[in-house]
């Protein structure tokens, strides 16, 4: 039996002390297409170096669906070690087979179903009739934009799995990231990373570019490289042949 506390501040919470709420988080997924440790480790390091701040202590779900489909087995405990060594915090497995799922649960790693996975291309190959239904909600979910109406202050981070629209300034020392495009309808002074999951078509738009860093799909420029950019002018930034192009919006 639980011992009752006699502390007077118990009266602060007259009602229940907790409740369960449903929340949606956007978490990066590490989709594996090789079971070779050396390759995984090497490529993971390379990716992380592109945006160390973004990946540091970032939660991650790893997806082994493709491996299983191609009959490539992978040791879950070893994979977890590799991911953790890279500074990421694994919080789930997706697309694992029965044995892998059991191994994950034993290691306190939750199992996610492939149900709402990003990788609808895999699903479509499997079940062509489901294509129409599967694609529509997926693209709708992808298009889901996050809208921020208050200033993003120094030290704050915002991540959107779709587009990110900020209607106020982004301060120096703040970091905004989106898998899709980024729009800032005010001064952009912090870091802005668009297409963080590799979407090279993503763009950044802002009404005044004074950013510390801008990046699209891992290609970046720091403020030092942007000295010649005129202030107080709306610009767009996009990727062309692996180079970032900053262009006035006339």
């Amino acid at each position: 039996m639980q011992r009752m506390s006699t502390d007077a501040n118990n009266t602060l919470h007259n009602g229940s002390a907790l409740e369960f709420k449903s929340s949606t988080f956007s978490v990066p997924v590490l989709v594996l297409s090789s079971n070779d440790w050396i390759i995984i480790e090497h490529q993971l390091q390379k990716k992380i170096q592109l945006a160390p701040d973004f990946f540091k202590n970032s939660p991650i779900v790893f997806d082994v669906q493709w491996l299983n489909k191609n009959k490539l087995d992978i040791d879950i405990a070893g994979l977890l070690d590799t991911i953790r060594k890279a500074g990421l915090l694994p919080i789930g497995i997706r697309g694992g087979n029965e044995g892998q799922n059991k191994q994950a649960i034993d290691l306190n790693i939750p199992v996610y179903s492939v149900h709402n996975s990003l990788s609808n291309e895999h699903k479509n190959i499997d079940r062509t009739p489901a294509k129409a239904q599967a694609v529509a909600p997926e693209s709708a979910a992808k298009a889901q934009a996050t809208i921020i109406t208050h200033p993003v202050r120094s030290g704050q981070r915002v991540y959107s799995s779709g587009d990110l629209i900020v209607l106020a300034q982004v301060s120096a020392g703040a970091e905004i990231m989106a898998e899709g495009n980024i729009h800032v309808y005010s001064t952009l002074r912090g870091r802005a990373l668009a297409g963080v999951q590799g979407n090279v078509e993503a763009r950044i738009f802002c009404s005044d570019l004074e950013a510390e860093l801008i990046s699209i799909a891992g290609t970046y420029k720091i403020s030092e490289d942007m000295r010649s950019i005129a202030r107080n002018k709306p610009v767009q930034i996009y990727l062309q042949e692996h180079a970032l192009i900053i262009k006035d919006i006339a």
Binding site: R153, S154, G155, G173
Partner: peptide
């Protein structure tokens, strides 16, 4: 000014 901005972020979160 930078530190105040950081503080404002904490105030709002």
């Amino acid at each position: 000014v930078r530190d105040s901005d950081r503080m404002l972020g904490l105030l709002s979160s």
